[in-house]
Design a protein around this nucleic acid. Structure first.
Lengths: 329, 329
DNA sequence: GTGAAAGCGCTAACAT
DNA sequence: ATGTTAGCGCTTTCAC
């Protein structure tokens, strides 16, 4: 049975109110008593019950995080960042994987309500609008990441947003290929990269358009973000007549697959084919001969967590949308 | 202000006790009342407060998870598994990254106590024994993963353990190389693979010993689990005279690096050099020509979570140690 | 400066 | 079959 306020109070010969004051660093406590209480608390290894505090405050110092799937490489650093920020502010955090499923989302949203979380960071899932509305009804602050909330989603409450400008990252990357003299540039894309104005695909197309290059449909391969697809997309592209002299690759596992195909064919980078890749793990092809860009996913988590904490502190602040740029290497 | 028991009770014209009974599916409630209460609860969008329940029960339906770092590829699937199991049993879960730091571990252990978690799954950190003792003192069940608890650690309470038999995975993998005729097999290892009897390094050495092959020190490269190290280790090994005809690679990012070096040198698998790799992401080299083995990290999380739930339900059951085998492909 | 007491939302023991 | 009530551990008026 862990020590509670009462135990500390009895042992220190004071009331529980006094102990509470000392622990909350409230004024109006004599130095003598303060020291005595602190000593007893340490001695008994006392930890205030966060559960009791949460009930009393009608709000738990907990941040909810609703992402698609922690196994998606895109999210790992983001999760770590949220955790780091949360704990430095003495919040803990609840992680939920929605699998982009509106029903799961709905269940988890109700969990957030039941846990009285102080706020939630989420990746909006199409079709889950009614769940988000319940969050808003419960006055739970929301920060969305990677996608915006459909305009109709969350009216009663302002939601901050953090997105990455994938498009300009990729544009920079592909422009480097073009400046290196490449004219026929294949693209290996994960189909979950999306297609909005900030999407990776948009950046690829924009770079080509900037230089008046045609966007040949056969140069674009879209599929699951797996090594297997990377392998077969690379093979398909390299079999084209004429074959592309450079490849843009949009995700870590795709790059792994592309490399496997290059190995199988004894093709060297960049002599036989140049490669520019986006890497969620920020470790792709740091070799001088290739171009790589990491994604600032940790920063995204940091910004999201800080926005959420700011909104928890002041619900009336104007909602913000932050667009993070990537530094291509 | 979310609806509470009292709101439902008033609206349904019954007492809060009755509502509580209905919601807990307790007997002794007339069908008429039950239906009415359920209808009102749905109408008000009522969710019982998990905070209040936790306080009342003096135990929260929460599982704590203390891992080294979610960014380590080894842990992502494990986390997902724990989450899946937890939520199917109506538990939520708290994730903490210890960075293998005893001080952080200590802080997080106190957080677990303060949150009244029902149990915790953890990767033991050397030097954090006193923190683990506090968990035991608080009668919080523990399941360790990937490592055992130092014998002295947690006496008052039994701790279940789940580990992977990395050694036999690697042994199988390397034996395949040997059976394919290779005699000089280089090894690229992450230094955090550990060195116990279940370690990957042990498996490599065992496979060589099984066939009376010498374990030449220059054939073993150990370093950080990064693509950069994989690149340079592969380069170093391939520069040996005579060069190894096969490579064993111990981690996903190392494999990425090795592939980069092979690409740079226009070396094909397996004609120029054979590769057998362990991959935390279970997607390494599914090509027929190479040998790869995934790590059953999801299964590890599942087993750990189920052991924990079983121990939460019955603290007196005998502690178990589960050693998971990997299927090499 | 310190203490007594109410109450956060719920469950369970006890009444009826 | 249903209602009343005490209390989980804490914070916070309100008294003294």
């Amino acid at each position: 049975m862990p020590a509670k306020l009462e135990d500390v109070a009895r042992r220190a010969g004071v009331s529980i109110a006094t102990v509470s004051r000392v622990l909350a660093d409230k004024p109006y406590v004599s130095e003598r008593v303060r020291e005595r209480v602190l000593a007893v608390a340490a001695e008994l290894n006392y930890r205030p019950s966060r559960v009791a505090r949460s009930l009393r405050a009608r709000r738990a110092r907990v941040i909810g995080l609703l992402i698609s799937d922690i196994r998606d490489l895109f999210f790992t650093s983001l999760v770590r960042a949220v955790e780091d920020i949360a704990y430095t502010h003495r919040y803990s955090f609840l992680l939920c994987n929605t699998d982009e499923d509106p029903d799961k989302t709905s269940v988890y949203v109700d969990l957030m309500r039941a846990e009285h979380v102080a706020g939630v960071i989420l990746v909006p899932v199409p079709g889950a609008e009614s769940a988000y509305r319940r969050l808003a009804d419960a006055r739970i602050p929301v920060v969305t990441v990677e996608r915006r909330l459909p305009a109709a989603g969350l009216e009663p409450v302002a939601a901050d947003t953090v997105v990455l400008d994938h498009a300009s990252t990729v544009e920079t990357l592909v422009l480097q290929l073009i400046e290196a003299g490449h004219r026929r540039i294949g693209a290996v894309l994960a189909h979950d990269e999306g297609s909005g104005p900030y999407s990776r695909q948009a950046g690829y197309l924009r770079a080509l358009a900037d230089h008046g290059l045609p966007a040949a449909p056969e140069l674009i391969c879209t599929g699951p973000a797996t090594a297997a697809f990377g392998r077969c997309a690379a093979a398909k592209l390299l079999d084209l007549q004429p074959a592309p002299t450079a490849l843009y690759v949009g995700a870590h596992l795709l790059t792994l697959g592309v490399l496997q195909t290059l190995v199988a064919r004894r093709l060297a980078i960049p002599d036989d084919v140049a490669v520019a890749a986006v890497d969620e793990l920020d470790c792709s092809l740091e070799e001088p001969e290739s171009f790589g860009a990491g994604l600032p996913t940790y920063a995204m988590g940091e910004v999201a967590a800080n926005l959420l904490l700011a909104r928890i502190a002041d619900a009336s602040r104007p909602p913000q949308e932050v667009v993070l740029q990537t530094q291509a290497t």
